[in-house]
Amino acid sequence: MAAVSPSVFLLTVNGQIEAGNFPEYDNLYCKYCYVYGNDWTPTFGLEEGITQITCKGSQSNKLIWNFPLETTFKSTSPSGWPQLVVSVYGPDVFGNDVVRGYGATHIPITPGQHSRTIPMFVPEPTWRLQKFTSWLLGRRPEYTDPKVVAQGEGRGVTRVRSQGFVTVSFHIMTKDMRKLGYDTGPSTTQPYSTDWSAD
Rank of each mutant, 00 (worst) to 15 (best):
L46F: 06
Q190H: 13
G45A: 10
S58I: 15
Q151G: 02
G181V: 03
K74T: 13
Y102R: 03
K56A: 04
G90Q: 01
T110S: 14
P91Q: 09
Y89M: 02
Y32C: 11
G37C: 10
H171S: 09
Y192E: 11
I118E: 03
T43K: 12
V122L: 03
K74N: 14
W127Y: 08
P68D: 05
I172P: 10
P23L: 01
Y192N: 14
H106Y: 03
S58F: 14
W135D: 14
E24Q: 02
T144W: 06
E142F: 12
T12M: 15
P186V: 13
V166S: 01
N66H: 14
V160N: 01
K56T: 06
Y34L: 07
M1D: 05
P119L: 04
T188H: 07
L10N: 08
V4M: 03
G57K: 07
L63E: 02
N21D: 08
P82C: 08
R161C: 11
K147Y: 00
V35T: 12
G20V: 07
P68C: 08
L129N: 09
G101N: 08
K147V: 02
S77D: 12
P111E: 12
S60I: 00
I109E: 09
V8Y: 05
T54D: 09
G164Y: 00
S60G: 00
G45R: 13
L11P: 10
V122E: 00
L46G: 10
E24V: 01
Y102A: 04
E124R: 15
L136A: 15
G49L: 02
T105M: 13
E124P: 05
M173E: 14
C33L: 12
F73V: 11
W127F: 04
C55M: 15
G20A: 04
G103E: 01
G95E: 00
G164E: 01
C33V: 05
E18D: 14
W81D: 02
A150R: 01
L180C: 05
T189H: 15
I53V: 12
Y102G: 11
T189N: 12
E70P: 03
Y192I: 08
P119Q: 07
G15S: 00
P6Y: 03
G20D: 04
N21T: 06
V35G: 06
S87G: 13
M1Y: 01
Y36G: 12
F94V: 09
N38K: 15
P23Y: 01
G103H: 00
L136P: 08
L129K: 14
S60A: 03
Y182C: 09
K56V: 05
C33D: 04
Y29H: 09
N21G: 08
V148Q: 05
F73N: 05
